[in-house]
């Protein structure tokens, strides 16, 4: 065999093998060999964000051997939360700074009289009242929280007591509270509370009504659905699953869940779930709530929930 042919044959074999080189390197070096990580502890928790942050904070404080933060005067501590950072422990509600770059913990009941921007988490060990415009990344309140001036939260809100919004409020991605009273225009993506309502008036579940239309069982609807309780009250004793838009208006009581692959509109008197039971309203698109409304449980939209009481 002439040398040149031998050379060409060798070169041909080399080129044949070359495409496998990156594969073989990866096969032997195993730079990305592990399977995707599946968390064995994974479960659905509506209070996940607030709980995780407070776990970080309380563990850090426990390590500092601070049992009662209230005893301390205003102080900054360097803690390792997700990363090493300063955390302010304040008890002065007449805070001079407008913008705070670190996580801030108020150690007692606090009324926010001036406008502030909290670029990180805002924690209040006590009750919180917002009387002036405030922006925060996240908000944790150990007691009750009343929003009386426009407030914008970017990430999560966790209120152990009752959350009342009397002014415009953008509550970010996730809200967790014991009870939520929405009395001003409010928006968020998810909210969980034993009771979320927009009015103190008795709605259909607390009224004596006659001539109701009763629908029993669970429903799966391929297109859009519109339920109106203007003329006669409607009781749906089951869940509602819909591929299209859901529009419910008037005296309608859905005792189960409402789920839509598109948007959901709930207007003027709709009640979801029943006292003591957690039920959900879940939509891929927007959820619009207008007028008197009440849900016992959870509202979740991949886009936005807008409440206009």
């Amino acid at each position: 065999m002439p040398k040149v042919i031998l050379l060409i044959a060798l070169f041909f074999i080399l080129l044949f093998l070359l495409p496998f080189v990156p594969s073989l390197i990866e096969l032997f070096l195993k730079r990305d060999a592990k399977p995707i990580s599946v968390d064995p502890e994974r479960k659905k928790e509506p209070d996940y964000f607030g709980k995780s942050f407070m776990y970080l904070l309380s563990t850090a404080l426990k390590d500092l051997k601070i049992q009662e933060v209230e005893k301390y005067n205003s102080v900054y501590l360097k803690l390792k939360l997700n990363r090493e950072e300063w955390v302010g422990f304040l008890n002065d509600e007449n805070l001079a700074e407008n913008t705070l770059d670190t996580p801030v913990v108020f150690t007692k009941d606090t009324v926010f009289l001036q406008n502030h921007t909290f670029k990180r988490e805002l924690v209040v060990f006590g009750n919180a009242v917002f009387k002036n415009t405030c922006i925060a990344r996240s908000l944790y309140v150990q007691g009750n929280c009343i929003i009386e001036a426009p407030v914008r939260i970017a990430r999560w809100v966790h209120v152990e007591g009752t959350l009342i919004t009397k002014s415009n409020a953008d509550l970010g991605v996730s809200v967790y509270t014991r009870e939520m009273k929405i009395r001003g225009w409010t928006t968020f993506k998810r909210a969980y509370a034993k009771k979320i309502d927009t009015s103190d008036d008795p709605l259909i579940d607390k009224k004596n009504v006659e001539g109701t239309i009763n629908l029993q069982g669970n429903f799966s609807i391929t297109g859009n659905i519109s339920i109106g309780g203007k003329d006669r009250p409607v009781f749906v004793d089951g869940d509602l699953f819909c591929d299209g838009d859901v529009q419910i208006e008037g005296d309608v009581w859905i005792k189960g869940n409402v789920f839509s692959q598109k948007s959901i509109t709930l207007k003027n008197g709709v009640v979801i779930g029943r006292e003591g039971k957690v039920k959900s309203v879940v939509a891929k698109g927007e959820i619009l709530i207008k007028g008197p409304f009440r849900i016992y449980g959870y509202i979740h939209s991949e886009k936005r929930v807008e409440v206009n009481p």
């Binding site: 869940n257 789920f259 039971k277 039920k279 959900s280 449980g297």
Partner: peptide, 12 residues
């Protein structure tokens, strides 16, 4: 993406 049912919280 079609939404799965994971976000429904229901005690029943």
């Amino acid at each position: 993406q079609r939404l799965y049912y994971q976000d429904i919280l229901d005690e029943d």
